[in-house]
Simulated assay, not measured.
Amino acid sequence: MLGDFSYCNPTRLYFGENALDNLAGELAEYGEKVLLVYGGGSIKRTGLYDQVVSILKESGKQIFEVPGVMPNPTLEKLYEGCEAARTHNADLILAVGGGSCCDYAKAVSASAWCGEDPWEKYFERGEEVDCRVIPVGCVLTMVGTGSEMNGGAVITNRTEKLKADLEFGESVFPRFTILNPRLTFTLPRYQMVSGIYDIFNHITEQYFSGEDDNTTDYIAEGLMRSLLHSSRIALRDPEDYEARSNIMWTATWALNSLLGQGKSTDWMVHMIGQSVGAYTDATHGMTLSAVSMAYYRFLMAYGLPKFKRFAVNVWDVDPAGKTDEAIAGEGLDRMEAWMEELGVVMNLRELGVTEDMLEGIADGTFLLTGGYKILTREEVITILKASM
């Protein structure tokens, strides 16, 4: 493990088929004014909306709603939520939906009372939260983002064609999250597999950085192997409870900050993918899958020992009689075959990207320094072209 670090995660999780039974007890800890945020209406079709509203009313809460949170929440939508939170003086923001709803709730939590433009404060200047924070709770219906147990929030500025990952501190972490795997059964297959790849990429973003032999990497390998196993079962039977519950639990631990402790992390697939998303509004996990293979094949030469370990420990590649390059390459080949088995998007054209967008996507890609190679803008363009 590298350096000194402090680790704390304040989110309380309720997991299982009866997890929603714990909502009333949590609501008792907060004031009477609840801002309910949700997406396009699927929770009404499934009956979850009625269940949650019933619990809120039985708990004596006043309910104010912000519906229509989109898969890639926009800055304009953030302003709308902030206005609603201030107008009603919300005591709790309850997000019911997928990761985008959780992201949105946290962004509103940190922004409603900040006293200035949140984009300028948190994104342009990178400042910490120093204002009143509205507590957040989540009822999760889609897995993948890990937003239910971290302080991150991805917001899209459509005017500037930028998709920014705002990282807030512990004060903005959800206070509680309800995790019932059965709530994910109604997802279309496209969304299920997109979420599965998002989970996997969250792990690889933290795994492919640093060459020290640390405990965190062993945890990451175990999570990846579990995800591979359960994903194949879920592909055959999307309502296999054990498989979907394992996927949900893996998603939470993939991005609750545990895997980033004591090591550097990369996140360049996310930076490129999020810039693609700002241009296409494509499903997040699919923007990651579309650029992953080109990026990791480019990166392999700079982190060969870890890519070799990945091939052997995650993909069961037999190293006997092979060069390190051949072992690492076979691991990536097996990863690509699994992605194709999932049915995720494998190139940018499927997302509507055209050649004339590549320069702008590269300009919107934030270049991070934690991985094996600090990319240049020209290298980002090379990776984008290889992803077409």
Rank of each mutant, 00 (worst) to 15 (best):
K306T: 11
V312A: 06
A328D: 08
R297F: 03
Y302M: 05
L299G: 06
W315C: 06
G321S: 03
P305M: 04
M293F: 08
F307H: 02
I327Y: 00
R297V: 13
N313E: 15
Y295L: 04
T323C: 06
V312I: 15
M300A: 07
W315Q: 09
K322C: 03
S292C: 08
Y296F: 15
D324K: 03
K306Q: 12
D324E: 15
Y295G: 00
V312M: 14
M300D: 03
G321K: 09
M293E: 15
A311P: 04
S292F: 05
A301W: 02
Y295S: 00
P305H: 03
I327S: 01
P305T: 02
G303L: 11
D324Q: 09
A328E: 10
E325H: 08
A301V: 13
M300R: 14
P319W: 07
S292Q: 14
K322W: 09
A311C: 05
K308N: 02
W315L: 10
V312S: 06
S292N: 13
N313M: 12
A326K: 11
L299N: 14
I327A: 04
D316Q: 14
G321C: 11
A294Q: 04
A294N: 03
A326S: 13
L304E: 05
V291F: 00
F310A: 06
V314E: 00
A320S: 15
D316C: 10
D316M: 08
V314P: 02
M300G: 03
F298M: 05
R309N: 11
Y295C: 00
D318M: 02
T323I: 05
R309T: 13
